[in-house]
Design a protein around this nucleic acid. Sequence first.
DNA 1: GAAACTTTTGCACACGCTTGCAAAAAGCGT
DNA 2: ACGCTTTTTGCAAGCGTGTGCAAAAGTTTC
Lengths: 382, 382
Amino acid sequence: MCKSFTRRVFLSSGLLRSFNKISGLVVAVARKRVQDAVNNYGFMQLNKSFVSADDVAKRAGVSRSAVSRTFTPGASVSEETRQRVMEAAQALGYHVNQLARGLMRSESGIVCLVVSELDTPYRARLVRALTHELQKAGKISMLINTDRSDRSVDAALRQTLNYRADASILLSGLPDKAITRLCLDSGQRIVLINRDDDIDGPFRINLDDGQAARVAVNAFVRAGCRHLAFANSEVGTPSLMARERGFVAAAAEFGLEVTVTRHGNTVYDSGRTIAQTLFTGRKPPDAVFCVNDLMAFGLMDGARHDFGLRIPEDLCVVGFDDIEQSAWTSYALTTFSQPVDEIVKSSVAWLQREPDNDEIRSVNLHAPLIWRKSIRNKTPWA
Amino acid sequence: MCKSFTRRVFLSSGLLRSFNKISGLVVAVARKRVQDAVNNYGFMQLNKSFVSADDVAKRAGVSRSAVSRTFTPGASVSEETRQRVMEAAQALGYHVNQLARGLMRSESGIVCLVVSELDTPYRARLVRALTHELQKAGKISMLINTDRSDRSVDAALRQTLNYRADASILLSGLPDKAITRLCLDSGQRIVLINRDDDIDGPFRINLDDGQAARVAVNAFVRAGCRHLAFANSEVGTPSLMARERGFVAAAAEFGLEVTVTRHGNTVYDSGRTIAQTLFTGRKPPDAVFCVNDLMAFGLMDGARHDFGLRIPEDLCVVGFDDIEQSAWTSYALTTFSQPVDEIVKSSVAWLQREPDNDEIRSVNLHAPLIWRKSIRNKTPWA
DNA sequence: GAAACTTTTGCACACGCTTGCAAAAAGCGT
DNA sequence: ACGCTTTTTGCAAGCGTGTGCAAAAGTTTC
C-alpha cells in the first residue's frame, strides 16, 4: 500500500524499459530521486515508504549487519557503533520489520486468539488479560473472529498458518482434528481454554466444573432448598455439560431430583425464557443453578418481574463466571469465579517453555464460589 | 521456533564446515534427509516445519512461480497446472506465507486495533464488529492492549510499525502527534474513533454528542423534571466532555441549572459514588444524564437501594452507549445508541479506498435515543 | 614490538514469496 | 504448413532481515 505509490512512479518513468538488465541500479536512482524530493520540499509527502536497515546503515556509516545487530539483543556491537546506529534510526524513524525478521528466524512473535462472541463479558475479560500478558512476554496477538459458523474455526486456524503464528489460543469452538494436526505439525503450539478436546498435542486448560456443581448443590441444600433446577443452553460445550452432569449427580446423592432446562444460546434472553418455563410449571423450583451468569441475570429478572419472586427469600440462584455485572447491586449474584489470571498465566507460561517431549499436557483449575446475596444462609465452609 | 529444530540438526551435522561455500546445496541435502525420515516413519514428527512453495512446486512438477500464481487471484495460470498445484498443496498442507508475501507486496494485510479496557461492553462490541468486518474485507486484526498507561499508546503505534500494519484503528487514548506523523509518513492509515484529535491525516469518526445532549434535556423537560444533573467521570475524553458541555448549554436555554459531578473512571462504581453525592446533597436532582451506561447503572442501583428512589417515578435517568445490559429488565435504561455498525462500516470502507488527496477526513454519526423505561412520558417526537 | 587472544565488522547467503520479462506453448486464420 | 496473436511458464531479481564465517581491529601478555 505504502510502497505501491513509489513503485508506480518508478514503473511509469519509462526508464525501466531500456535499463531492465541492471534494474538494481535503476531502483537506486529512483530512490535517490525520491530522497531529493523529500529534501527539497522539506516534508515527507512523497516518501510513503518504510525506512529500512539499509537506510540507517548508510546514514550511520556502518554496514547493515551492524544495524541488525544493534536491534538484536545479545549480538556483538561496540558501544560506539550502537550509539551511531541508534541515532540514525531515531532520526529516520526506523523500526525493525518484524515480517522480515519473522521470515529469517521462523518465529513471528504472533499469537492468534480464536474467539467468537467477543462481546460476552467473560470472553472480553479473558481476551483483555491474554493480550496484556502476551505483550509482557514480547508477543503480539492476532484476533480471529469465528462468529459466522463452526466451520470458520478451521478457516481461522488456516489463517493462523498463513501468518506463521507461533501459537494459537482457542477460546471458542472446536477445530477439526485434521487441521489441528496440521498446525501442530507445522510447529505451532495450541492452547485450548475450556474446550476439553481429547486430541493429543494442544495444551488444555479446564475448570473443575464437576466439583463446582457439587459445591452449588451443597449450598442450596444448606439453604433449605428442595426443588432444584438447572438452567442450561443448547450449545452443549463440554464445560457446560460437565456442570450439568455434576449438578444432577450431586443432587442425586441428596436424593433430590433436578429439573434440567436447556434453551437457546448461553445468554440473558435464554435465562429469561427459562424463567417462564420453570415458574409456570407444576413444580416451580426454589433453587436454580445457571450455567453462566448471563443466564442467571435473565432468570432473576424473569423471576422477579414476571412472577414477583424475591431473591433469595423465595428463590436461590447461583451462576458461573463471576463477570463484572454479578457484583452489581441489582443482582448481587453468588457465583463461581473464573480464575482468569491463572488461566492466562499458565497459558503464557506454557507458550514460553521450550517444547520438549515430556511436557505438561493439561491443567485443571479451581473455580471458587464467590458469596453474594442470591443464596440464603451464607455457609462459610463451602 | 518450528524451523529452529531442523536447523539445529543441520548445524550440528558437521557437514557445514566443509561445504559452506555451497551451503545452498547442503541445505537441500538436509531437507531431503528430513523428508526421508518422514517417509520412513510415516508420520511428520520430525518435520516441524512449514511447507514452502518450493516443496509444492517440486511435487507438482512445476516452477515455484506457478505455485505463487495459483494462489494469486487474477494471475495467469492454466487450469491444468492450477489443478496440479492445488492438489500438491492440499497433500502437503501448504499455506501461503503472508509474512513473505507482505514483504514483497509491502502490504501486510494487518490492521492494528489499539484499545484499552477491552472488557468494557461497548469496546468489546466494537472490537467484535471490527474484526468481523475486517475479516470480510480480507484483513486480519492485531490487538494491541494499552491498559498500562497513556504512554503505551505510543508504544502500541511503534509495534504497529514493526509489523508493517496497513492501518491502525484507535479506540482508546490519544497518541503523540509525532508518532502519529511517523505512522502516516510510513504509509500507514489511521482511524480515530471518538478520539477527536485535530491532527490532519487520520480519518476521524465522531458522534454528534452535543445534539444528543440536547435531546436528553428535551426529554427530561418534557417529563417534568426541574433539577437536572450530569454524571461524568474524570477521564476527560473529548466525546465525554462534549456531552457535558452540550447538556449544560441545552439546559441553560430552558433556564435550568445543571449539577455537574465528575468522579473516577467511566464505570459502574463511579456512578454508584456519584449517587451518594447527589442524593445526600441539599438539592437532589430528579433527572440525571450519565455520560455512559455503566455509570447510569451504578447511579440507578445507588438511587434505588441506598435511597429508595423509584425510577422513573422519582428519578429519570438517561445513559449513553446502549450496551446490552441497558435492555435488561432491571435497568430498562433509556439511552443513546452507539451506531456501532455504521462506525465499523465507514471505518473499513475508508480503509479500502485508494488513498488520494481530496479524500474524506472525518465523519459525524448520529446517536439515536432508544426509549425504554427510565424516563416518564415517552415522547415520540424526540 | 611481536605473539596470542578477544571483540567487532562486513560479506554474502538464506528465509519464502511476487512479478517483469522473455521464451515457449498453444490457438487461429489462411 | 506457416505466420500471427494470445496465453502460459520459467528465470531471476528483489523485499528487509538474521547470522556463520573470516578478516580486521583492538587488547593483553611477555
